[in-house]
């Protein structure tokens, strides 16, 4: 059923005194969708600055391309579906930014356009728009590009801060996976490595994430649960792997783990609504990251870990329905007074 946006709560009584009549409650807090979305955009600014600092013009071009394409796609789809245009709500900007931040700096512009169209069009609007999508749109766009341009999306180069020449270079995760070379924690923290534009600098992402926490839009259980799960399973592999697997801190700092933990796991639309459900979501997703990275054929598992868990959300929500206040235990025992 189409989402009717006109509020039907207000009626005028035809023989009344002209007063406004509506259904209770008549008080509301000041939160709104645009407010939440614009706060997330603010929180992404440090990561965008880091991307531009390390990858210069490439980053600027890709960011602009993804944001503009996302907005235009949203606009066209909403027009075509005869839905009210809500481009201003900020959600499409977030998808554009996140997709750009997950791309290699040398990714071609036409590829970024295709990815953005797919993310918004298929990832979000086809499901019914904001709130109805099952998968995180940006991640779905990125998965689509991984399938269609497998070479371009795994071609990396060193950040501009390392020298004038653009040299192609493997990411820390690929180095670890295929050559057994570990990258130092320091480089991973400040982001002076090759990788997806917005994922290399763990500190910048952390600042944005903590800002969201400070603003009250995310619960720490999601990001910390995810990172904690990655760390615990990473630790188990590391201890039992005889030097074959990377250490848990490397797991957390490398690749998309930080961006995923603070900005994608926490996507309200595609995560469970109950605290218990959220724990299940992040712990299993964390396990999947480590399993894919250590045992699978791919160097990185963040994207698939979240997409797979997105698909499980309706089921998790059903399983973890809170016990209603005063609900009696199934057996005949009387509830404690």
């Amino acid at each position: 059923m189409a989402e009717e946006v006109k509020n039907d709560g207000f009626l005028a009584d035809k023989d009344g005194a002209g007063l406004i009549v509506s259904s209770s409650p008549h008080l509301f807090n000041t939160e709104s969708i645009p407010k939440i979305m614009h706060t997330v955009v603010m929180a992404l600014i440090p990561a965008m600055i880091a991307a531009i600092y390390y990858f210069r013009l490439d980053a600027v071009v890709l960011l602009v391309t993804c944001i503009v394409t996302s907005l235009i796609t949203e606009f066209i789809f909403q027009k075509a579906r005869k839905q009210p245009v809500t481009v201003y709500d900020g959600s499409a900007i977030i998808t554009g930014i996140l997709l750009a931040l997950m791309l290699p700096p040398s990714f071609p512009i036409y590829g970024a356009i295709i990815g953005s169209v797919f993310a918004i069009g298929v990832g979000k609007q086809i499901f019914g728009g904001l709130g109805y999508n099952i998968f995180n749109p940006a991640l779905l766009g990125r998965a689509f590009l991984q399938a269609t341009y497998p070479v371009m999306i795994t071609t990396w180069h060193e950040p501009a801060t390392k020298g004038v020449d653009v040299v192609s270079a493997a990411t820390p995760l690929a180095l670890m996976k295929f050559e057994g070379i570990s990258t130092g924690w320091g480089s991973l923290l400040i982001g002076n490595t090759s990788g997806s534009m917005g994922e290399t600098c763990a500190i910048a992402i952390l600042i944005g994430g903590l800002y969201l926490f400070y603003k009250g839009y995310i619960d720490l259980r999601m990001p910390l649960g995810y990172l904690g799960s990655i760390a615990v399973f990473g630790l188990l592999f590391w201890l039992g792997g005889d030097g074959k697997y990377p250490d848990p801190v490397f797991h957390i700092l490398a690749g998309g783990a930080m961006l995923g933990a603070w900005f994608m796991i926490t996507d309200m639309v595609t995560s469970p609504v109950t605290p218990k459900g959220q724990w299940i979501f992040v712990i299993v997703a964390g396990f999947l990251v480590v399993a894919i990275r250590n045992l699978g054929g791919l160097p990185e598992g963040v994207m698939y870990s979240i997409l797979l868990m997105n698909a499980a959300v309706p089921l998790i929500n059903r399983w973890t329905r809170p016990k209603v206040f005063g609900e009696q235990p199934k057996k005949n025992g009387k509830e404690k007074g």
Partner: peptide, 18 residues
């Protein structure tokens, strides 16, 4: 102006109500 809410959006499953 204090009571009339703006038009409503889709549910983003933020779980605030839960």
């Amino acid at each position: 102006d204090t009571v009339k809410p703006a038009d409503y959006f889709g549910c983003i499953r933020c779980a605030s109500c839960v």
